[in-house]
Design a protein around this nucleic acid. Structure first.
Lengths: 233, 233
DNA sequence: TCAGCATTGTTCGATACCGTACAGGAATGG
DNA sequence: CCATTCCTGTACGGTATCGAACAATGCTGA
């Protein structure tokens, strides 16, 4: 049916009303879901794969500010209105598809369905914690720690220990240069935590990887688990 | 009356209903408004001065994740409930006082007053943009650029080009060590952008400081100005 | 099969910042 | 007025990461 965690939490009745208005869009790599500066037309509920919300600086440098997978939605700020904020969202790790919903439909549904409003509210809460933690993380933790964190987060979201991932993309995620990523990945390989070959990354020793990752991984994950636990709704 | 921008935006009737339930708390330096891990009891609307929302890591290292002054409120996440998130809020730059409001009163008022809900919603929007921008900023910009940005932001919030500020605090704000701050401040002094002496910082050449600051200063400021413009309510 | 492209590996010097330690000056409180 | 505490300046070697090339490898499509 759907692999998206927010949609899964919806009561069947609410979900049934929503489904006819949603379309499937393929989660192909590098697909741009929201372009910076353009109004949001649709919001997306990924069933798998991973999307990045990025900020683009004036000099063209781009860096990830938030990661979104099946636990959330792309275009959260549509709750505030159609205007975009200074950021761009795109698919980083490909998946099968995401549910796309027109912004107006989404906003209308938020009014009608208290369940959806509550779920989106909880996701917003988790999203905020994630971004706050990332802010601290980026100023205190090394590129290696953050790399390990990102790989673990991605594994959780794609639901598999192996996924396509170029070092170039990883460099954008972490806000470092690509050669730095090469060094880090080599280091992680030598210690047996990951295996890497030409665009495919496999996590070989997750507990080991978690040891070299910073605490931000566990913190954010615990928060999402708490907020999006089925029973809590 | 009040110097807090959110309260000022309230219609007189709504503000009048709120005032009797608020108390003044002095904005003395290092005063802790929300302790990490403890439930939020009150939210605060600063009239002046600057507060920091910080994240504390397991090893004790602390770093600022958001700055709050008279343009906002401390304890925004009370909109989600009483539970704290993994962060601590305290006064960084002293001011005269802030309005304190009991969380339950705040939440009740959010239900009753659509004006307050709308204003808080707008502040949330700005807050999110600020934190997202900071995430990117922390991973791309140098300590010097971020320092200049922080000083300009602080000037805007205290409404004066001179304010008390130790290098130790500045180091926590920026997530760097104190000796690094010493070097940066010396550099900014030599170029005539700031004057500094024992706990007092004065901005001598704001346009100059803005030139060495990263673009994040202007971006976030423009966003808050847009969102909290009186006419837009 | 081969050309072309995307991706990865590697080098180099340069620089920003760390970690730690210590010393001196200014404010503060008894 | 003295002791203490806070704040600032400074030093040092060490490390992470930059910036900018260039080489090497594997994929892909004509």
């Amino acid at each position: 049916m759907t692999g998206n965690r927010l949609l899964t939490l919806l009561p069947p009745h609410d979900l049934a009303r929503l489904m006819p208005r949603m379309t499937r869009v393929p989660m192909t790599r590098k697909r741009v879901l929201h372009k910076g500066g353009e109004p949001i037309r649709e919001v997306y509920f990924p069933n798998d794969g991973v999307c990045s919300m990025t900020t683009v600086m004036r000099d063209g440098r781009m860096v990830e500010v938030a990661t979104i997978g099946s636990e959330g939605m792309v275009g959260l700020n549509a709750i505030f209105g159609r205007e975009t904020i200074n950021s761009e969202s795109l698919v980083q790790v490909p998946g099968t598809d995401a549910w796309a919903l027109d912004v107006d439909d989404f906003r209308a549904e938020l009014e009608q369905s208290t369940a959806l409003a509550m779920i989106v509210n909880r996701y917003l809460q988790g999203f905020l914690v994630m971004v706050l933690q990332s802010t601290a993380c980026n100023s205190l933790h090394s590129a290696e720690e953050r790399c390990a964190r990102w790989l673990l987060m991605t594994r959780d979201r794609v639901g598999a220990p192996e996924f396509p991932m170029t070092q170039e993309l990883l460099a954008v995620m972490l806000g470092v240069r690509r050669p730095t990523v090469t060094l880090i990945v080599q280091k992680l390989s030598q210690r047996g935590f990951v295996r890497y070959s030409r665009g495919r990354l496999a996590i070989a020793d997750a507990p080991g990887l978690e040891r070299v990752s910073c605490e931000c991984y566990a913190t954010v994950r615990a928060e999402f688990d708490r907020l999006l636990a089925p029973l809590a709704i």
